[in-house]
């Protein structure tokens, strides 16, 4: 297992490097000039050229890529063109906001989605099932940005129950988290339901029942654990979508997180900010996928044994069993 994790961590290096290079390439080919953004339209060509040289924008793309890597190895993500503050420091400051938003939204989605899905599956084809699935279809179909604006309008503007923007107290978190997680609660609930319905029909569930186990154990220990295996994958993918969703919610609700920073960098052509945050996001995402794979291996022994570490032992046992069989038959 440790070897598996180490290999996966090593594999992350080319992936993250590749992403960084592609980002640099995209910035290169999209129109727009950071120097012009900084100096305005009235700037003289000489001043623009001087600034470009100063920011290193005249270097060929490979040189800039190597420079970027060199900086990162030294823990330096460069300085923002706009704010002149170090990108790394800024990201560390903003990271907790994004992590809280994504983490709690994920927890809410899983914590509500799975029980809801199990409930719908165990009441299959009743009005309870249909009701739960209708509501979740409604939320799955609703885009995050629109739902967020509806929430702001209703709870923030009309009722004035909750703060509209910025993070001042725990109440400020409620609307952004509801906006980000509701669609995912519905996704997980629907996925859990269909997996459960599939698993409940399996022979080993009949076996579990025939052993005299109570319904609770049959459903949670035997059915749900099997049904969760594909859901772990969904949760991993959701993390990526949640980060994407967080970009939008952070802007709408004025949360000073990584998402807002990235959007500001993108609109201001602030290359170091864009490169730094994309680098950070891709590292986070790769780590989550790694965690998902490790959880997979923990839950599903069939994946665990694919590494072939027990082959030798099995062969030995096989011989022993044959001996035993002969003994019994004798």
């Amino acid at each position: 297992m440790l070897r598996f994790i180490r290999n996966r961590l090593l594999m992350m290096i080319p992936i993250v490097l590749g992403i960084s290079f592609i980002v640099l390439l995209l910035l290169e080919i999209t129109p727009g000039d950071p120097a012009k953004m900084l100096l305005g339209t009235q700037a003289t060509p000489e001043r623009l050229a001087a600034l470009r040289a100063q920011l290193g924008l005249d270097d060929p793309i490979l040189v800039r890529f190597v420079n970027f890597l060199w900086q990162i190895v030294h823990g330096d993500f460069g300085t923002s063109f706009m704010t002149k503050r170090p990108v790394f420091e800024e990201m560390i400051m903003r990271m907790p906001y994004t992590l809280v938003l994504v983490g709690i939204s994920l927890a809410v989605s899983v914590g509500l989605g799975i029980p809801l899905g199990v409930y719908a599956a165990t009441h299959h084809n009743t009005w309870k099932d249909n009701g739960a699935m209708f509501i979740s279809l409604f939320f799955v179909s609703m885009p995050v940005f629109w739902f967020a604006l509806l929430l702001v309008r209703f709870f923030g503007v009309e009722l004035r129950w909750l703060p509209l923007s910025g993070i001042d107290s725990w109440q400020s978190w409620i609307l952004p988290i509801v906006a980000t997680s509701l669609g995912f609660v519905a996704t997980i609930a629907r996925q859990t339901r269909s997996n459960m319905l599939e698993v409940i029909r399996q022979d080993y569930i009949v076996t579990a029942k025939a052993k005299g186990l109570p319904e609770r154990k049959v459903i949670y220990r035997h059915a749900l654990k099997n049904a969760l295996i594909p859901i772990i994958m969904v949760i991993g993918n959701m993390f990526g979508l949640l980060i994407g969703g967080a970009l939008i919610t952070e802007v709408i609700f004025g949360i000073p997180g990584l998402g807002q920073y990235t959007i500001a960098g993108l609109t201001g052509r602030d290359y170091p900010v864009i490169q730094g945050s994309v680098f950070m996001l891709s590292v986070m995402f790769s780590l989550v996928i790694l965690i998902v794979d490790v959880v997979f291996a923990i839950v599903d022994p069939r994946i665990r044994s694919q590494s072939g570490r027990k082959k030798h032992k099995d062969q030995k046992d096989g011989n022993k069993i044959e001996e035993n069989t002969q003994k019994i038959e004798a």
Binding site: D203, A208, N226
Partner: peptide
């Protein structure tokens, strides 16, 4: 108690 027809699917795989 009952012995089931298909041992491949009668045991919980995990």
């Amino acid at each position: 108690a009952m012995i089931f027809q298909d041992p491949m699917t009668a045991l919980n795989p995990i």
